[in-house]
Design a protein around this nucleic acid. Structure first.
Lengths: 312, 312
DNA sequence: CAAAGCGATGCATTTTTTGCAGCACTCTGC
DNA sequence: GCAGAGTGCTGCAAAAAATGCATCGCTTTG
């Protein structure tokens, strides 16, 4: 029989940690019987392993409900330990691989939309030019989700603008980002060195949705002016913001890291005066107290220098 | 039924982590055959488990030498993971115990000698008065050893005076400690409010050995005065310092946390003027990036308030 | 009230782990 | 230079553990 077939691409099976996978499978599917299918094992066997584990562990970790299993508080604590433990083992693996000169690994990034068009593609390509065996995941997350991603070890690094909560967030680097007005190169205001917020209000505005940092800053600024922003278009796509602004005489807003003047000669980017909108910080960070895998750490360093350079 | 008994003396056996114990046993004893005795298993079985683990892990973790086994660099990395993993599981256990209202656990402290006579006994007793099921280990360590203890998870907390290196040390609390002259209550200088260092030099000096923080501070101060301290007695026992000073007309030195005026009416403690010896910081901390067990964290909090109160 | 879902369990079977004995090898001391 | 004691490693049979199957008792659902 071939119960535990070949490991697909980097997923290492440590047989002594299988019980952790089983616990997570039960947690995910909510019942032993469903989890048993994922685990390629019988429900009865799985059931007994869970029971045996609970006995060893010293307390139950699941509530037995008529509809299935649910983690109790002790189980939640254990689950976090399991995830931490697994990620740390991956880190050890990556460090061991590093010993023999090969850098392999996988870097998981949670980031704001603004990083998608130019910044991250450029940095990831640059990194992979040097270490082609390192792969990446990029997940678009808002500020709250990004932190949650770190906590569940869904992501190694987060790159977000003005994060709301930061309890579990350890900042590696912060760089200031003024708010930029984005418009067609043919726009009447296109050649200005700087703009007052009031000037922008004369034109159609395209604003990111309310959950985004840029929007929060703009709303606050408008409130100080005693007004309220009334966008012609509100969207959760930063791409849409840029394209709408490029198309006609509307004005969009974005932070510099999401813009690239060279790539868009048809567009113009003008900073909003700091006295109107102070701007905010773009943060690179990871879960507090975590030791990152080599690949993630190295990439984080590269991003840090890139951000520093961009600022000057 | 009594399904969830507690394993004797808090040593919980998690069978799926036995392989880690085995690896540590081999590491400690330096050979499979010796480790086999500690592990209550045959050498052949142990050997095969190590081999199986290495295969799963993806690389060897031991060097095979003619005289036995030694961890290779990969093994060193893994060992650290194992220790971290085990301590984190203990933390989870302690948090789970906390859920049911019982606070159990064991707090391991690495500390300077100065804490031994009064401070730690008092604090530990106070803590155990509230939580009698929490036990303690106290290991006397100099500044370098203390940090090493944290790294190997030998200790949860360190309480040291002016630590030399602090790369892995996360400071929870720091409190300033002036250097105090310690002498018999009958000593000519006993009633002074403050002393210049020069005045002390008229008398026999009893100094702690050179590795201790107080001594370093005194040596630096003496060098500034253009001199060199020539102690009548040099010792690595702070007890000895106090007792020698109490006995005759010698002068010893100690930091306030190691002294208790109420307990010793026969002695007098006078601060050295800050312009001569600035004093130093007493640090409470733990290993950077670690999550402490509940008991250790709670005790650390108690110590922090005690230290703050002592200062004022 | 029947059907469908759930976790738990007894028992025979399969899989894994272990112990025993013995191998090849390298140092050490006479 | 050669025994002796130390090392890690391995084949094979025995012991132990994990698994699959069938089934039970229970709760929810329609």
């Amino acid at each position: 029989m071939h119960r535990f077939d070949v490991t697909p691409a980097g997923t290492r099976i440590m047989r002594h940690l299988l019980i952790y996978d089983m616990i997570e499978a039960v947690h995910r599917s909510g019942s032993i019987r469903k989890a048993a299918e994922d685990t390629n094992i019988t429900a009865s066997a799985l059931n007994r392993r869970i029971q045996a584990f609970e006995e060893e562990f010293g307390s139950e970790i699941f509530e037995r409900l008529p509809r299935g299993m649910r983690l109790n508080p002790a189980g939640e604590l254990l689950l976090h330990h399991i995830r931490l433990q697994r990620q740390d083992l991956i880190r050890v693996h990556s460090q061991v691989a590093d010993l023999s000169g090969v850098r392999r690994g996988h870097v998981k990034i949670a980031c704001s939309q603004a990083l998608l068009p130019y910044f991250l593609p450029r940095e990831i390509s640059k990194y992979r030019a040097e270490f082609p065996d390192v792969t990446f995941s990029v997940n678009v997350r808002d500020r709250i989700q990004a932190e949650q991603d770190l906590v569940t070890f869904e992501s190694d690094l987060a790159l977000v603008f003005e994060p709301a909560h930061m309890v579990n967030f350890e900042v590696l680097h912060a760089v200031h980002q003024p708010v930029m007005a984005v418009m067609s190169a043919a726009h009447p205001l296109a050649d200005r060195k700087s703009l007052r917020l009031r000037e922008c209000l004369e034109y159609d505005l395209v604003l990111p949705a309310r959950q985004f940092g840029v929007r929060v800053l703009l709303d606050q600024a408008a409130a100080r002016l005693g007004g309220k922003l009334e966008p012609a278009l509100e969207t959760d796509s930063f791409d849409m913001v840029r394209h709408f602004a490029a198309y006609g005489y509307g004005i969009g807003f974005q932070i510099p890291v999401g813009l690239n003047a060279l790539a868009r000669p048809d567009m113009s980017f003008v900073p909003i005066a700091a006295r109107d909108v102070a701007g905010g910080e773009l943060y690179l960070g990871h879960l507090k107290g975590r030791t990152l895998p080599v690949a993630a750490l190295k990439f984080a360093n590269q991003v840090m220098t890139a951000l520093s350079r961009a600022q000057t």
